[in-house]
Design a protein around this nucleic acid. Structure first.
Lengths: 128, 128
DNA sequence: GTGGGTGCAAACTATTTGCACGCAC
DNA sequence: GTGCGTGCAAATAGTTTGCACCCAC
């Protein structure tokens, strides 16, 4: 955990804006003027592998979320790309309560199940 | 609706593989050898605006779906990136029935609500 | 002939990577 | 000293765009 990595993580945790790597880079640079964008990308990748941050890969540029404690989903504005948190309990019922809670005008939702297809499961088993 | 556009749409509707622009380009090229990748991108964009195809922007490269009739969700393999359809009825209950239906080992799901944030709604209203 | 759509190639954007250097141990 | 992580810059990948040309009307 280098100085750079810890500042990146700290700044990401401080915000609820789900910044892009570049936005985060700007913020971090205020504290570490010599840091490079590459370092930010590299560390975000490492932090995401270790489960300390979450990538949000959905429409447009990648965004990052420093909140991995609370189970939650996201609402994305189709115009400005802004991403806001939505509590997962409200969502579990697939209720469009987000409209009330966040003021979003929800036009749809994007649900993608993540996992392993049968082939990749088999391939992984073969490797062991 | 030019020859190119109709062949692109036709090939996309024929497959259930949710191809990338480039994969689709290869398929279409078998019928229209002189078509260019740029044309494929341009037409997919137009078709998606007119609602005839759907973009799947979730993790990795963009993929396209020619099936806009049936309400359905997607399952993405974290290893090979493959995307498969999941019927929306099974999903509405947020059941992990995909495991049974598709053989996927589901490790999680990605739910994103799409819409307009309050600011963008206000901005849009102001413009009218 | 005119205009929209095309093929081609170049541009652009986001992200990743190679390399030499420097700091912490 | 050694090695990992950095800063920098170049490379890569995916997508978009400018432009001249052509075809359908």
């Amino acid at each position: 955990m280098t100085r750079q990595r810890s500042v990146i993580l700290d700044e990401l945790r401080k915000t609820c804006a789900h910044p892009t790597a570049e936005e985060l880079f700007e913020t971090v640079r205020a504290r570490l003027p010599r840091i490079s964008l590459g370092t930010v990308y590299r560390n975000l990748e490492l932090l995401s592998e270790s489960g300390e941050v979450r990538k949000i890969d959905v429409g447009g540029r990648r965004r990052y979320d420093g909140n991995v404690e609370d189970e939650h989903y996201h609402a994305r504005c189709t115009v400005c790309g802004r991403i806001e948190d939505v509590s997962s309990t409200a969502v579990t019922a697939l209720d469009y309560r987000i409209e009330e809670v966040r003021g979003f005008t929800v036009t749809g939702h994007l649900l993608t199940f993540i996992g392993l297809c049968p082939e990749c499961v088999r391939a992984a088993e073969k490797r062991n």
